[in-house]
Design a protein around this nucleic acid. Sequence first.
DNA 1: GTCTATAGCCGGATAGAC
DNA 2: GTCTATCCGGCTATAGAC
Lengths: 193, 193
Amino acid sequence: MPTSPTRDLIIEKADALFYEGGFEATSFADIAAIVGISRGNFYHHFKTKDEILDAVISRRMTRTRATLEDWEIEDERPRYRILSFVHMVIANQTEIMAFGCPVGTLCSELAKLDHVSKGRAADIFSLFRDWLAGQFRALGAGDRADDLALHILGWSQGVAVLASAFHDEAFIRREVIGITTWLDSLPNLSHHN
Amino acid sequence: MPTSPTRDLIIEKADALFYEGGFEATSFADIAAIVGISRGNFYHHFKTKDEILDAVISRRMTRTRATLEDWEIEDERPRYRILSFVHMVIANQTEIMAFGCPVGTLCSELAKLDHVSKGRAADIFSLFRDWLAGQFRALGAGDRADDLALHILGWSQGVAVLASAFHDEAFIRREVIGITTWLDSLPNLSHHN
DNA sequence: GTCTATAGCCGGATAGAC
DNA sequence: GTCTATCCGGCTATAGAC
């Protein structure tokens, strides 16, 4: 896969525009205008709009992996690693209240479009899911680890959807406290990690 | 507001198409084709696409109110009324796994489009929210009633998002059991209603 | 690698006959 | 109330000059 500064800039700007305005509603002209190139030049880098989407998803996958690694480096205790995930909804609350979760809303849109890349979008969710399951396993959750991972992933998605619909910061904070309490109350898991 | 069989049919079909394919991705031609009328005739009933969206949201509001009334008639015990809400995600699991929640996905899309009707879409959520809060008040939740309503609404939204991303029926069932258990474990609430 | 110009299509919206 | 015909604009995508 070729790489160039212009290409990278296109992907970066497209990523933001797809998040803020949706994939379908974002046109080549929109991206070209923000990047500062002509529409014609665009096609030197990407032949179709789907190719850009693919590159955007790949970018998000790479960045997600990097974030997960950062969280692992920041704290070796699984409980705090999981809380790093949970606190994302507070760290990004302004964007979430405006545009929802970038992963959840992309999956929802691509599902309705029945787009070929809808599975790849869900793969971003899987990165979080598998990583969270790993942390729950480290906490001694055993076979329940994946269920717990899915549960906390879904919880955060619900927070994002309602935060966007109601623009309610207090709700976000309450739910984050709720998740933290839930985490500490899990039976048979160590409360000291 | 005028009413006619054709107009009603347009709204009904548009409602389904907006849900299954998204608002923006659904064209006048798509709706006209399914309704069985010409595009020109369309404009006799609706002057703009936004007018159709408005009518669709109104239809959903009306139908939601009717559903809430049905749940009240079916059982006078608040706990079972709340469970009627919760079991929607199982009753509609096929559609939810394919297209997500009709309310949540519409709110997400309109938020990104910064559409004038995004607030009206969120009003559908408010119908559920206020009704649920009423049930929690009847359970003796007092000031916490609205928080609990938002919590369970968000929970169901998270289930819908992940059910659609992962197409996982077992996950839906587990979460419904989880909500039921949570409901029964709420402190200071009667467990017999 | 970047540009201009343009093709070709489909979107929403309108006019006017029947 | 329903139709056909049509306009206009924006969209994706292409061709070809520089």
